[in-house]
Design a protein around this nucleic acid. Sequence first.
DNA 1: CTGACTGGACTGCTTTATAGACCAGTTAAG
DNA 2: CTTAACTGGTCTATAAAGCAGTCCAGTCAG
Lengths: 243, 243
Amino acid sequence: MPRLSPLNETIHKQTAKEMIRDKIISMIASGILQLDDELPSERELSTMLAVSRETVRGAIQLLAGEGVVQVSQGARTRVCRVDVTVRTQRIGVTDPTSINGYSLEAVHAARLLVETAVAADAARHLSADDIRRLEDSIAAQEQALDDPVRFLICDREFHLTIYYASTNRLLADFVVDLYTYMLDHRRIAMGEPGAIEKSLEDHRFIVRALKMRNPEAVAAAFSEHILRIRDTSRAVDERGLTN
Amino acid sequence: MPRLSPLNETIHKQTAKEMIRDKIISMIASGILQLDDELPSERELSTMLAVSRETVRGAIQLLAGEGVVQVSQGARTRVCRVDVTVRTQRIGVTDPTSINGYSLEAVHAARLLVETAVAADAARHLSADDIRRLEDSIAAQEQALDDPVRFLICDREFHLTIYYASTNRLLADFVVDLYTYMLDHRRIAMGEPGAIEKSLEDHRFIVRALKMRNPEAVAAAFSEHILRIRDTSRAVDERGLTN
DNA sequence: CTGACTGGACTGCTTTATAGACCAGTTAAG
DNA sequence: CTTAACTGGTCTATAAAGCAGTCCAGTCAG
């Protein structure tokens, strides 16, 4: 047993407070909660998440301390910062070249391998309903060309619809994880001139291939999309190093 | 946001006691601790796992209650049952056709896609040291032909050595997860006549391809290995249904 | 036999989370 | 404008989990 010795791993204790904090942060990072949105009330959250109100309050206090939310007595708590990440927030280190300890290049490579396969599988099982949802998403993306955050929300809807149309839920969940890991980096990358337009173009191309139900074409289109994301990501990193 | 609504997920609180319990169970399930083996002493475990002795004692009490270990004052605690699973133990349901909620077929498909890619990458980066370790493992496997549990321990060493020789740690970790998920099912499958011999043969073939540093050959050999495992697994399931 | 180990038991303490009550500020409907 | 129903802020009492340290009792090998 030379490489793995489970006995020596220390356990990772996390308080309920921190778990709830992370849960709220991930809602913000994924765009479910947007800038200036109201959080559910403390009492609502406590029943939703099945913890006491004190615990919810603890989590919100942490978030307030980090400047992520603005609390004010009598009124609901509001989101006032959206540049957050679950993991980096917890560890306290922000390393733009790695996600959850994995290099960005590793994530790109994994997406290239798995996501194309998942998408190809989705091409075989996409329902008419799914296709309509994808087209709706594209229409929404066209309306969000100058709002990176809103665009990313549509982008998420678009990608997740495809992932969950595949028949292998294990791989779909894995790909969703990868996609979620990348969200913060994508938000930065979306600031690049032309990045949003290019993404939209890729999405249109992917939908066209999906409607033809041609797995190979879908895989190719997805591969191109991911490679473009990778190159943008590399460019941002390069520029980040010279700044 | 039609498919995911993280707000309604209840949080999953797990006490340190339970985490340690699961950790010990997974050591038993993976064959690191075998029948009649002694557990490390409570004081050793507490320093190893960085928790208090009380917590370790709590975990052991849970295990004793489930009949997994036998404690006796003065002497060390011993393993007295090995038919355990981390997940099923916790959920209380045993479904032989699914792992962690994913269908066995999904796991096989995922392995087929990802594991072959990881193995091919490993072929390009395998060190001489790794090759020696693989050959040692094969020798050990030859000595364990009539002991399924011991064989599986060697099998694990063999597979993990290859996984971690690849350059993409994200995919390697993923594949290790898949492999670990399958351990219980493989223990059952190893009872099939000829299963161990076939596996050993596959391993020899894989090592030959690895030594040639031929990624395509390695991928092909791995693919064959996984397909064989899948077929054995299917056969066991079929038989299980007719019983 | 004996001494060094093992698990068993107990105390005191801190931290975390729960449940419930009440106060104070906000907001929108009447 | 008034008010009633919300919101967050505060406080209590209680329970549980975990930690640290100590001492007891059984086991086992030198």
